[in-house]
Every structure is written in structure tokens, then in C-alpha cells.
Design a protein around this nucleic acid. Structure first.
Lengths: 137, 137
DNA sequence: TATCTTCACGTACAGATGTACTGTTCGTTA
DNA sequence: TAACGAACAGTACATCTGTACGTGAAGATA
């Protein structure tokens, strides 16, 4: 393992949008970027290029346009990213992060219940809309 | 708010160690760094200097040595950092991160129970050692 | 007192990052 | 068919990051 280089924040953002689209061109990714994060088309292009170079994405030229898709599974990237964060910010201990999410990002008792049922492998309550879209900042 | 600059990964790591010590000199932080992350004394020094310049730490010269302490509360930094991550990696939705932690970092049903009681403000089960110190990589 | 140790402080420097422009090429439309 | 717009590939560039070295002063030691 030549130790894949980690993704930077910006790259991560663009990668996430691509993952959602599964397969997409620069333009499609650009248009799918969250509104408040409208970066230049060329910037998105650069990010996608770098993501490909780093080995996270495949880019195939289809006709005149390059179509990108995940090469490394999102789940893997997420795991590595979160592991890294937990390591640096909480010395590798997961619980403080959970606590933080509960205290600072509005995870409710019901959310936990949902999570617990998922864990136990039997859906219980009828699933509500996730109540923690944004913290009530 | 002149928009405080965010901390880089390395800075975060050093900051966390300092927070644990409350007040500490470069040497103390250096020695308290996790073993597998033994960076050079001078490197720690640079990080602390940068952290001070960025406004995250106070550094007071006491005699011949500079003693650092938090200026911005850890909780604040953690909130900003986690918010940023959730934003970029999960489009601002907290639940997927919770799910990830459960599925990939060994948060157990019992851990959730603990969390839930904390949430409800009444400790229930006698508190065990947190079972999720490290993911069973 | 001559030397060693320890710091603070300034400096260094390659590589990563955020952000974008430019030149070129190929279908499209006037 | 000549001008136009879209997409790619290459280049740019100021900052930030990770990592550390060198210098000079102050205190400890021989």
C-alpha cells in the first residue's frame, strides 16, 4: 500500500456530490454543488482532476466529455476521514464524539431509539423524518 | 467576527494535547504527544506558535518559558470542526455520521443506552468502561 | 569562568490546497 | 463556412501545512 493520499476538505466536498450522482460530468457536479458553495466551474474541474490523480475517482472520456465515477468506495473514504478526525480530535475515543453530536447537534432521544433499533436489526417505530438535518444554531 | 481561521489537522492534534494539560510549555506538550505521533520538539513549537497567532491559544512568557493555554474554548473548536466535517461529508445531516459511528466504529447497543440516559438526564445502568476506545481494526 | 543545555524566535522550504485563467479542439448554429 | 460555445488539458499562483534548522540569550554545571 503506497498509502493513498488523504482528501482535502474541498476535494471531499466535491467527491461527496459526485458520489450522490454516481456518475457525472464536471458540469453536472458543478450544478449539483450546494448553493451556498458555488465554486467556479474550473475549480470543480480541478478538484475532479485531482481526485482522479489521487486514485479516488475514475474518469472515462465518453465522446468529448469526461465522466467521473467513484473508484474508492465512499464508505471507505468516510471511514478513513472519520477515523482521522476521531484520532486527532478525541485521541481515538469515539464516545466523546457521540456525546458532542447529541449535545451540540440536536440528536434526540428518538433519534437514538431509531439508531438502537437499527443496531438490533429490527426496525421498530415507523421511521420519522430525521430530526437533525441542521443544528438549530 | 473576522472569521477566525480554521485549524489544520496537525494544529488540531497539538491543540487537543494542550487542552488536556490545561496549561503547558512546549516541552510538556511535546512529551504528552501520543507515542506513535512523536513529532520534533521544534515542530510542536511551531504549531503552538501558529495556534497562538491564529488566536486559539494564549501564550504567556513565565520567566524564560512560554506557557500556553486555551483562548478559544475546546468545545467551540470541536463544534466548528465537527460542523465543518458534517457539512462537507454528509451535506449537513448528522444522522449518517451517527450511523457510521455505530456501524464502523463499534458503538454498541449499551453505549447507546448510556448515551440515551445521559440525554434523559438520569444515569441508569452503572457506568461501564466505554467499550469503544478503538475500533477493532 | 568556560561549557553545556534549554528556550524563544526567526527563518526555511517543499508539497498541498483553494481558486482560477488560457489555449486548443470539436461539435453547433447562424 | 465562419463564428460560437462547451469541454478538456495545461498552467498559475498565493497561501497554508508539515516539518524542521539555526542563532542567540539565559540558566545550569564543571
Amino acid at each position: 500500500m503506497t498509502e493513498r493520499q488523504m482528501l482535502s476538505k474541498g476535494e471531499l466536498e466535491v467527491a461527496r456530490v459526485l458520489w450522490e450522482l454516481k456518475r457525472a460530468t464536471v458540469r453536472e457536479v458543478h450544478e449539483a454543488m450546494p448553493v451556498r458553495r458555488k465554486m467556479d466551474f474550473a475549480t470543480v474541474q480541478t478538484y475532479l482532476r485531482r481526485l482522479e490523480k489521487k486514485g479516488y475517482l475514475n474518469g472515462r472520456l465518453e465522446g468529448r466529455t469526461r465522466v467521473y465515477s467513484a473508484k474508492i468506495k465512499p464508505k471507505t473514504v468516510i471511514r478513513e476521514t472519520v477515523d482521522d478526525l476521531v484520532e486527532r480530535l478525541f485521541a481515538g475515543d469515539t464516545m466523546p464524539l457521540m456525546q458532542h453530536l447529541i449535545e451540540e447537534r440536536g440528536i434526540t432521544s428518538d433519534d437514538l431509539e431509531t439508531l438502537k433499533s437499527m443496531l438490533d436489526g429490527r426496525p421498530s417505530k415507523p421511521k420519522r423524518e430525521s430530526s437533525s438535518k441542521r443544528s438549530p444554531s
